[in-house]
Design a protein around this nucleic acid. Sequence first.
DNA 1: CCGTATCCAATAAGATACTG
DNA 2: CAGTATCTTATTGGATACGG
Lengths: 220, 220
Amino acid sequence: MQLEKLTQQDKRRYDDACGLAHALDLLGDRWSMLIIRELAYGPRRFSELKTDLQGISANVLTQRLGELEGRGLVRKFKLPPPASVQVYAASEWALEAVPVIASLGRWAARSPLHDPTLPMSHVSLLMSLQTLISPERAQGIDARIGFRLGDASYVATVREGALDVDRREPEDCDVTFIGSPTDVAAVIHGGAPFGIIQVEGDMDLAQRFVTLFPLPPKAT
Amino acid sequence: MQLEKLTQQDKRRYDDACGLAHALDLLGDRWSMLIIRELAYGPRRFSELKTDLQGISANVLTQRLGELEGRGLVRKFKLPPPASVQVYAASEWALEAVPVIASLGRWAARSPLHDPTLPMSHVSLLMSLQTLISPERAQGIDARIGFRLGDASYVATVREGALDVDRREPEDCDVTFIGSPTDVAAVIHGGAPFGIIQVEGDMDLAQRFVTLFPLPPKAT
DNA sequence: CCGTATCCAATAAGATACTG
DNA sequence: CAGTATCTTATTGGATACGG
């Protein structure tokens, strides 16, 4: 019966030497790419993943994590005591796929069908900033931007036209954005008024920061 | 019942403002990315697609083409008389996704699980050449390489370290590779002997050409 | 609470046969 | 050749129950 299962899995593979087909064998299943995205900035717990991947069910998440682990894309381990909780991390190799799937997201943002008002996870938000930052507009800026997005906090460092992201508490930040990822995205990407979120620190910098992420033009 | 169907379709979407989630709504269904890949070098007919996408069934291909058309990624039209055959083409916007999915393929080629001896389509072969060419090694080469791969023919132009690909008959080519896509791939990527395919023209160039596509190192 | 296992209903995918 | 129609199988998601 185990064998039977394996046979069925094989049947669902694309038997194709093409790299793309193999990529889809590795992470073409529903939710797989989104799971890797959620692991982009560090290890996560099962329940965090379940919460942030809105709509996934526990059994499917278990199954995907197991498959990804078997393919060398995810490692599962226990944090050392006293935390002693189980977490899932992306392998180094899997992390190299992150810029590629981020480009896919950038491409799709040009879709006329894209609805940017839907909820988004904190990882999506930070990744969208990394992906959409305009090197020209960010030229000459050297700043540390904090984010408090529910119980997830990040520090984004603008330097040399790019954005570095660390998942840690915002300390020594020039300005800090506080709110839900969806609301912060509305302010940064959607031009919503600052009133719907909280901003602490250098307001002038905040005003300038939100102009660094031009949305790519819609496709026809 | 139509309405019911639409509701169910919506249920299968990721309700997420993240660009990646939208990308997967657009072409995350099984076969969708491979269909776009097949359309990368020009319009194709239904039966060609069915043949080259080894393992897809007619009903699924019909359904995918319809969905992709509805999302603005594929156009369906009739060639002018006397051909008068129906063909499918990728939209301009969909073609912009091609380099991204090619990068996905490049990433996956590093997988320890990847089996490069499986059959591949002529489009995969040409795309792998475009994706894997080493600008350093190709530096200074200016050459026109022909391919006759079953009933599909291409001309690849090496210039300034990159490869341009046109789907047309090889005329005025410096050298032409003739054989199945899988065998030609074995020679170019797998180091197989030239004996398993046919090569016409400048053999020295052919020998040099096959060294321009180093496989990325395997991940651990 | 964290995560896994099991059962069920709804869909999507696959195989095959068939039609204009 | 270009698809449809139909039937079977697999995967998904939801609910729920179970072990640490």
